[in-house]
Design a protein around this nucleic acid. Structure first.
Lengths: 207, 207
DNA sequence: GAACCAAGTTGACGACGGTCAATCTCAAGG
DNA sequence: CCTTGAGATTGACCGTCGTCAACTTGGTTC
């Protein structure tokens, strides 16, 4: 916290900050994958965002001076660059454009959220899952011949929390996607024929 | 567009700006009610936001220099203060803090969106409708004895677009709320026993 | 008043999702 | 080897929602 910047290594499953904590600064993801999850009073939770390298987390609490609304946890081994609160405030004051770039992150988050609200209203759960898998495939997947495959960075429960369904329903959605021939699953290993990209018309616009 | 500021009167149903248009500046709602609606390729639409007096609309396109993602339409007779693009840019450049205040609007929008995403994931449609009606009642309603009543500023289709269901389902939700004794409906006139505020436990936290 | 149109409602039907309970899998530990 | 426990799956049941179609309502126009 004394020095302005510091690096931190997180293993998969480790916590970056807790929901309800006050802001200690902003965090930049150097490598890995961070999940921002909102816990509810009833014990359930919703996965609000996946933060990839280059993205910034914790800026909402930094800008608004309110407690974190989500917890941040590494899904994969991750390297995080931490900018302490004082340093961040100093840089934002001294360097023009910094605030504007942060505002741009906010706009991105707004667009992301609006897309998700619309998707929740207009698409079926199966379509939303197929969409999500395509996006994950684009990031985590590797192509082998006519197939793309990846190791899912998310458990079934995380997928369920992201789509907004129960784990049982997630199992059924996975089964239905497999029956449709769009994907095939083996635990966290997922394979997708390249043809599937064309099969799901709405997905392209969302990429 | 020449002068920096101008007032504009909109009747209910009139358009403030169209989806896909380039930004011409920012708009401040002086009185009335503005609906921000996103139209989709399939002809359907989603009501993204209701903007009340004191709120600002069109700032996303202004800040990002991208076309409006929504159309803005008056639901009630409204008075709008328009700040042209050049003026807004000049003010933002000259007056420190303006950008920060705009960023605060963005944070509010993010919080609103996140609440809505969580509500969509965790609440039933009936609960979401009851929640929405309570909020509208708090703004548009007047108390008479043990009841609060209002004239809905929204059609059933608008309500459906806001909750994310079909009009037929909205009819059934309304009927079920009436059977539960939480509300009573006569066209756009809605009445609610004050006791209903306590009846719906989750609603309080969302107010 | 008759004709008309949009908004809203109702019914029937099938598909989907939440819930509860039982089972399965797999990896870690004794 | 057996036990344990968490994650994941499956089946059964029921309530809800989307869809299509028919109908009602209310307001506007001629």
């Amino acid at each position: 916290m004394q020095r302005g910047f510091s690096r931190r290594i997180l293993e998969g499953g480790q916590l970056l900050f807790k929901q309800g904590e006050a802001s200690h600064g902003v965090y930049c993801v150097s490598s890995g994958l961070i999940a921002l999850r909102c816990h509810h009073e009833d014990g359930s939770s919703t996965l609000m965002r996946l933060a990839y390298p280059g993205e910034i987390v914790g800026y909402r609490s930094f800008l608004s001076n309110l407690p974190h609304q989500t917890e941040a946890r590494a899904l994969l081994p991750s390297r995080i660059c931490t900018v302490s609160k004082q340093t961040a405030e100093r840089v934002a004051g001294e360097t023009p454009g910094t605030l504007g770039r942060l505002a741009n992150r906010c706009l991105k988050e707004i667009d992301r959220s609006h897309e998700r609200i619309i998707a929740a209203a207009k698409l079926t759960n199966k379509e939303r899952l197929a969409d999500l898998l395509c996006r994950l495939m684009a990031i985590h997947g590797g192509q082998q011949g006519a197939e793309i495959s990846m190791r899912l960075p998310l458990s079934r429960m995380d997928l369920a929390d992201l789509i907004g369904v129960q784990p049982e329903t997630m199992s059924r959605l996975v089964k239905r996607l497999e029956e449709d021939g769009l994907f095939s699953f083996a635990g966290r290993e997922v394979r997708m024929p390249v043809a599937s990209l064309q099969e799901a018309p709405e997905l392209n616009s969302l990429g």
